[in-house]
Simulated assay, not measured.
Amino acid sequence: MTASLDIAYPFTGCWIARYSPASRVPSHGTRMLASSYAIDFVPTSEDGRTAPITLGSLVRPEPADRFPGFGRPNLAPLGGVVVAAHGGEPDHPAYRGLPSVGYALTQHRRAAAGWVALAGNHVLIEHGGIVVALCHLRRGSIRVHAGQQVTTGDLLGDCGNSGNSTEPHVHVQAIDDREVERARAVRVTFGGTLPRDGEIVRA
């Protein structure tokens, strides 16, 4: 059984690491759905900033397309076979400030609804018995289908805000089974490294 998997960053440009297993495990505060070593990447402008926080940001949801990375390409981080591609979930508004509190209180509903409610639009790629998931893609943007062979750097879809997401980002995790509900988490690195929370990545 492979203890870890080294992959490429699934994007180009400037992104910031969030909920990194380099900073804590389980990285997202739960081991549910084999997410112990999952990591999020939030797209930013070249100076490392996401959408500016305004007074409105603190009191009401914001359109997802206000954020600099909404619609930015997400790429295959490794070669393999696409074993799942789901792209019909809606992109919802982003939640910061007070709206994020209300959104957090409804997270248990999404968790109870299962993988798709949490992952939103996603692509799963299998390589050597390990499956890598990219989640929260933009509705209608997925360019691949189940059974398709992909190589590192192939376009999979666009960064979105579907599923359990408070702002546009891509969630990456590796697992040891195609069925997420019975899988175990697999550690990942990116070009031999793993960024910590808050670290800026330029790919």
Score class of each variant (00 low, 15 high):
6 D>Y: 15
12 T>Q: 13
13 G>V: 08
18 R>N: 03
21 P>V: 06
23 S>V: 05
34 A>F: 14
40 D>C: 01
41 F>E: 00
50 T>L: 04
51 A>I: 02
51 A>P: 00
53 I>W: 10
55 L>N: 02
57 S>N: 03
57 S>V: 04
58 L>K: 07
59 V>P: 00
64 A>K: 01
66 R>F: 04
67 F>L: 06
67 F>S: 05
72 R>Q: 11
79 G>I: 11
81 V>Y: 08
81 V>D: 02
83 V>F: 08
86 H>G: 00
86 H>Q: 08
89 E>W: 07
92 H>D: 03
93 P>Q: 13
94 A>S: 10
97 G>A: 08
97 G>D: 08
102 G>S: 12
104 A>I: 07
109 R>K: 09
111 A>H: 08
112 A>K: 14
117 A>N: 12
121 N>D: 02
121 N>A: 03
122 H>R: 14
123 V>W: 13
124 L>S: 05
126 E>S: 12
127 H>L: 05
127 H>Y: 11
129 G>Q: 13
131 V>R: 11
133 A>S: 06
134 L>E: 01
134 L>I: 07
139 R>L: 06
142 I>P: 00
144 V>H: 08
145 H>S: 11
150 V>L: 04
151 T>Y: 08
153 G>I: 13
157 G>P: 01
160 G>W: 05
161 N>F: 09
161 N>H: 12
165 S>T: 09
166 T>G: 08
167 E>H: 12
176 D>Y: 15
177 D>Y: 15
179 E>V: 13
181 E>R: 15
183 A>D: 03
188 V>S: 06
188 V>E: 05
191 G>Y: 12
193 T>M: 14
193 T>Q: 15
193 T>L: 15
193 T>S: 14
197 D>E: 13
197 D>I: 14
199 E>M: 04
202 R>M: 08
203 A>P: 09
